[in-house]
Design a protein around this nucleic acid. Sequence first.
DNA 1: AAGTAATCGAGACGGTACGTCAAGTCTTCCT
DNA 2: AGGAAGACTTGACGTACCGTCTCGATTACTT
Lengths: 175, 175, 175, 175
Amino acid sequence: MAVLEAADDLLAERGFAGVTIEAIAARAQVAKQTIYRWWTSKTDILFEALAQDAAGYFTAPAGDDLGGDLRRHLRELAAFLSETDPGAVCRALAGQAQHDPEVAARFRSDFVTPQRERDRAPFVSAVSRGELPEGTDVDLAAEQLVGPVYYRVLVTGEPVPPEFTDALVDRYLAR
Amino acid sequence: MAVLEAADDLLAERGFAGVTIEAIAARAQVAKQTIYRWWTSKTDILFEALAQDAAGYFTAPAGDDLGGDLRRHLRELAAFLSETDPGAVCRALAGQAQHDPEVAARFRSDFVTPQRERDRAPFVSAVSRGELPEGTDVDLAAEQLVGPVYYRVLVTGEPVPPEFTDALVDRYLAR
Amino acid sequence: MAVLEAADDLLAERGFAGVTIEAIAARAQVAKQTIYRWWTSKTDILFEALAQDAAGYFTAPAGDDLGGDLRRHLRELAAFLSETDPGAVCRALAGQAQHDPEVAARFRSDFVTPQRERDRAPFVSAVSRGELPEGTDVDLAAEQLVGPVYYRVLVTGEPVPPEFTDALVDRYLAR
Amino acid sequence: MAVLEAADDLLAERGFAGVTIEAIAARAQVAKQTIYRWWTSKTDILFEALAQDAAGYFTAPAGDDLGGDLRRHLRELAAFLSETDPGAVCRALAGQAQHDPEVAARFRSDFVTPQRERDRAPFVSAVSRGELPEGTDVDLAAEQLVGPVYYRVLVTGEPVPPEFTDALVDRYLAR
DNA sequence: AAGTAATCGAGACGGTACGTCAAGTCTTCCT
DNA sequence: AGGAAGACTTGACGTACCGTCTCGATTACTT
């Protein structure tokens, strides 16, 4: 859809402030009314753009080695959030979620919840094959690993290189 | 300053979208021009409000026990970010930082950098008194602990109870 | 158009200083943006209001008697300028023309030039039917007669009664 | 006074819209408060500037020949109004007088009335020495001659060359 | 000569209006 | 019927001046 592309491009070229309904309409050669017919707001458009582009960025855990799965997953997560176009959309939506509870709700249901499932997958897999004990707090483990990545992306703005994510995994496994 | 209070109140009452220069001016009984004379934007006002209100929310580490220092610090951080008024300002600015590089730069210099110093303090203290070895990667350690807190606050929106922060500390110390 | 009426009314009620775009918009129950879409300035609005209202204030010369034509025309001119609503608009624009060359240019093309044609008409008619000789300087004659009327209206502010205009005509014809 | 000069210069350089109290203060290196201490408005300043500069522009009638007196006076009037700096101030005030009754009143008392006395002088002189009969309507005569000059200056914007003013005098004397 | 008042520059203040931008709603006209 | 076009009301933007108001710092006049 031209509208989604236009929104994406505007975000990349002019930042979030440049993503206006009018600019999207002008760039997509579409009437504003058409946009309002199909989407309720510009964040709605960005959510759809994110859904369309984010699919398939993450690979399923191989499921034979927790360390390997975690290292690969965290690297992918870091790269997705800090280097890809949908990652930029995702950051913009995370930002907007701080301002608007409705955006926050949708951000959680559309992005955070499924992403968290992917974050848990390596641990779930490890438990199921006995590499981790039955009672492991998988949620806590996932948050421990993933939290510092989001912290760098959203708070400090520092790069998130593989050395950093690998170090996180190493620390976790050394427990 | 009435302007800072007005901005704070508007943020609390109407959310970030309700924080407009006109609304601030009206509520603070001040002319718009006066606001523009002293601040460059509404985020500028919020930064100043944050600076004014955030002072003194954190206590210095006692410096005799790493576990205790960390537990207390993480609890304070979680409470500050998720339950206080300046915490709300902070979250709003973190959100805006995702949309605007200048806000991001100022957010880092005004909030993140000094806050990170406070986050590191327990570890630095522990190293200096020998509770942790000389070569300890203090930055990594701090990020590991505060990362999941910010993750809950900014991404998942889940509450951040003492049990959660304590568990993070326990996991760290169990290494 | 409600906008033109509003502008007219404001000029009559509050004077030229009361004719602001905001006041026009408020009184016409119209958004400022709508005004800016169709007019470039408040004088632009007044010009259009003048064009709309001024039409038909002057009767064509009967064309059988120079004295009668002149007397009637000067009385009409005096009444128009000093007693009618569009006359007030006209005076305001003449005033603004002293401050702004663009307004001056438009005032001349929109009002002065066609009005001068009407001023010349009695003389042209008199020449064509032989009441005045061929070589008569019609422009000079017209300026001689209307000049004192504008002088009273714009400079001295004295009333311009029929006795005055008739005396001007008598003097002219007595040549 | 630097303020009067500044107002004059601004009128010449930027037009009436450029004559603001702030601009005058800035250019005259004077505080706004100082201006408000001595003048009530920008037109007040212009009136004083006019009074200061206009003095001595007109020569008294020689008083021996009506035709010569009138020709010289009308030429001076035309030149004053259309070519001099105080003439520009005068035109600006005449314009503002169309918008503001207080300015109009002052314009009449400060400029029009004394000027009209000068306009009448040649006729008064001619009557007193018997060149014109006792009952001559001196006011009407003055308005007849002076009116077309103001008409050109304020309404049509045409130049007012000596040929034009001389022709007016010739027509008058030919009666 | 010192003390005191008037005057000055500088510029902050509460306001009004400016002209612009984008929001979201609506109507019209074309395919 | 759906979409492009675009007019509409609304409301916030950031700016320019308005006229009022403190501030020190000169001045210049008293005593």
